[in-house]
Amino acid sequence: METGRLGAFQIEVASIKTAHLQLISHSPEQTQRLGTSLGKLAQADDVFLLCGELGSGKTCLTQGIAWGLNVKEYAFSPSFVLVREYYGRLPLYHVDLYRLDHIEEIANLGLDEYLYGDGVCVVEWAEKGLPLLPQDNLLIKLSYLSQTERSLTLETNGTRYSQLLRSLKPEMKTWNSP
């Protein structure tokens, strides 16, 4: 395992492999910066699955993804309405399964038009509906480490996402520039 430490106030690469990247974020801004890079690299039909408890930074990461897609506003939580749509370089479909505890409820949502559509689909609380979500995806696991630190693990499923992760690596040096 390759490990790099970039200093406490910078995004930290905890481990990096072909299909796996683990990062430590020290602020919401750093989490947003990672998201912005993902948004810049995103293509139509991309699916990003976000797994992690309340307060682990899912909406924060999605805000960055939206900015990377040239959405000019804050993507805010879709928990109440389940899906919010934003229009930038590509449409962004921001889905949130937080309130749904049964897989049948998720099946009834009619998510396919977002998941297999013309835009980028970000699903918060994806762990609640994994069997119903596309098998090819970028899986991002977020967890709360301390008040200011979050761990983010990116796992690729499918060749499109391995390619995405490869393109992400050169972007990483921009995260720590002031």
Binding site: L54, T59, C60, Q63, Y74, F76, S77, S79, F80, Y98
Partner: peptide, 18 residues
């Protein structure tokens, strides 16, 4: 102004759930 993340009513809903 607007909310940047959770709406006030949504914060109440999430808080109640917690």
């Amino acid at each position: 102004g607007r909310t940047r993340d959770d709406a006030a009513g949504e914060a109440f809903d999430k808080g109640a759930r917690i």
